[in-house]
Amino acid sequence: MSQEVPEEFRLLCMLHNIGATKWEKSLSIQEISQWTAMETSSIEFHLQKLVELGDVQPIEGEGVGKYHLTPDGIRKVLTLYS
């Protein structure tokens, strides 16, 4: 099978690997962009899908939206490497 890992799943993995795995380590779109070198518009697009899937939890922090993985999101990331 020559399926590629979907882009939103790649973002989910990167969020996990940079440590956004609990609310106190939530990151803004700007911060995620700095870590991943991805365009903010692209991050916003994929985050919307990840939130809908229940893999990422949005929170309001210091006036900006921040994001971190849910336990299901963490488990989903681990399926790639386990």
Binding site: M14, N17, I18, G19, W35, Y81
Partner: peptide, 9 residues
């Protein structure tokens, strides 16, 4: 400490 790349992480 984190890093987007899995191996580095």
């Amino acid at each position: 400490l984190g890093h987007p790349n899995f191996l580095t992480w």
